[in-house]
Design a binder for these strands. Sequence first.
DNA 1: GTACACGAACTTTTT
DNA 2: GTTCGTGTAC
Length: 792
Amino acid sequence: MNGWDMGEDETFDRWEGESLSARAMAARPTPYLDGLNPAQRQAVETLDGPVLVLAGAGTGKTRALTTRIAHLLNTGRAQPNEILAVTFTNKAAREMKERIGHHVGGMIEGMPWLGTFHSICVKLLRRHAELVDLKTNFTILDTDDQIRLLKQIIQAEGIDDKRWPARMLASLIDGWKNRCWTPEKVPSSEASAFNHRGTELFEQYQERLKVLNAVDFGDLLLHVVEIFQKHEDILAKYQRWFRYILVDEYQDTNVAQYLWLRLLAGGHKNICCVGDDDQSIYGWRGAEVGNILRFEKDFPGAEVIRLEQNYRSTPHILAAASGVIAANESRLGKTLWTDASDGEKVRLIGHWDGEEEARWIGEEVESMQNGTRGLDPMGLDNMAILVRASHQMRAFEDRFLTIGLPYRVIGGPRFYERLEIRDAMAYFRVTVSSDDGLAFERIVNTPKRGLGDKAQQMINKVARDNGVGPLEGARIVVRDKLLAARATNALRELIEGFDRWSAMLTAGHDHVELAEIILDESGYTDFWKNDKSPEAPGRLENLKELVKALNEFENIQGFLEHVSLVMDNGQEQEGEKVSIMTLHAAKGLEFPAVFLPGWEDGLFPSQRSMDESGLKGVEEERRLAYVGITRAEEVCTISFAANRRVYNQWQSSLPSRFIDELPAENVEVLTPPGLYGGGFGAAATAEIPGVMRGSGLQEKAARADAYNSPGWKRMAARAQHRGTRQPSEARNMVIDMEAASPFEIGERVFHQKFGYGRITDIEGDKVTVDFEKAGTKRVVASYISAEDQIPF
DNA sequence: GTACACGAACTTTTT
DNA sequence: GTTCGTGTAC
């Protein structure tokens, strides 16, 4: 293992007997350069030395980046395995791979060093694990494991974990790791953290990780940096090896990532960072805008290239976004421009409350879908609702469910984070390595085996006393009959299970089959089959999904590694659906039509962000606003509600300060629908202080009376239209005919979101169901299934 | 040791 | 409105 030699590894296979210049001679034509604008071309062709590409939203950033790599390869400057290309998300990495392949044809055998910071670090760390006292098969803890471990430490110290919760310590330690601080390096200014015990607990935590042969997310970076700093020879090899380094989304790098990059770029100094300071929205996670602002100082002689021509949005949308972001103090400054012709103004509308906002957006989506807005009909895939915080999503889900509008939530609870997936993974982990204590702990008593706290404490104690892993400890407990007969038997059975499964694993039994066997024999599948809760069917479905996913891997180990690193779940792409997601999740995406609801002070900008980070916080929120607006290609609709239900009580709020920053000439104020239902109308809009504060929107609002406002006209037009053919009607008719009232009153049914319930009323395609958990709801029949037809 | 019921606290964003 | 954790009853 220590015979570390790059030459032996496929990822370090250099062409023999051919000098670089010779390869350069063999350069092929460069058709991929055609169609680039001058700035993009410069970004692609400035290959040597440090380069910072400041790429505004929608300026062809990814294109420049991938073309640059294609160019490096095509000119023979580097082999695919000599290029280090880092991204933040697996999705971005995947997309880059695809697009490079497209440029260069099939000639690339894959780029082993194109990936996320984390996945590349795992690769590096597995090679050099022993240098930081780890074994090469170390496990990567997920957040859940991390919290549980910290909780144990806190409790062992006799600290009240109510007052000092493990979550708090976890985020503290994460923050330190983001700044590349090991326990010794945490500055004394942090000494008072976590009741003055922070640093000490951090140290203990690191000790425990070492014993467990485990690392957390932050460690992946930290350990590699440490190896580079302590072992010059190793660093030098990598510095030599990576001829060219490319970094995507540079504005999102934290200090640890920055140091990592700087170390690796120290040799050839061919580092190209692409980013947009205006889209730095991960400050709370340790990202340092400073990294991008300082680039020229860090890398002397750096060339800075600005991509400013926007290919995505109409001029009004672009101008609105620019107007907002201009209010930020600390930015490098870019002036986005476009050739596109005029298009619609950004639309702004206020509502009485959050439910009305959801209702209005629902109708708006339907009318866009039908092309009733005077525009061409637009597919649901082309529309997105971008919210600040995930809890805002529920209002839309509820509404869309009721009217039967297909939607898709992007980036919700991730697949691998789900309870049942974690449990299943824990079984696999113990099977693979019997000393994975955290995993063992997780499942000793899941499903219930009568091995409660007392039994677990006994196992832990025995394991510790004998200096062995928990599974071995459990073996001793069984052997010496340290527990009641029933518990002993249960434990014996579990141990025998693991013995059997790991034997099968060693024997090379098919891993997909093995996974099924483990889940069945352990009783885990039955556990959920017997569970009566509404989530149970979904969980079983997820388990099936998990086993299916195993097919794509050669063995369970590879799969475990994949899951611990791949944060995104494969989104089902089928069917036309509106997307609902957070602004953060929307970065990098674009949609013809974008809705931005909830622009109210306190919600957006978020109160918490302002409280915690003051002006810096507001600036980051403003960048978030900028990201939101620039997602829109053709139509961008911003809205706010005067009242919103928070927890259980009503709270009224003022429109977001960002609304004031929208340039009046690029905004069209729509009249709220309440106008013709009575209640909240144009007058009320004008009454809300702030909406039009000092921006000239005031006159606009004043003019936006019932009959003149384009908003009203549209409203009236739609009302008429509705009379003849309601948008959702056509679609529902099909459903009606296909499934002519498949239900009857009193029947027990299942609904994806609300669970089980009994039908109390049927009215056309709408069914009223008294749900056991969710209460009485009126839903579209196609969204519920008869009890005996639950899909699993 | 488990099952259920009640109460508290929480909601930003996540590689 | 939820989820999580604690307390009580079996």
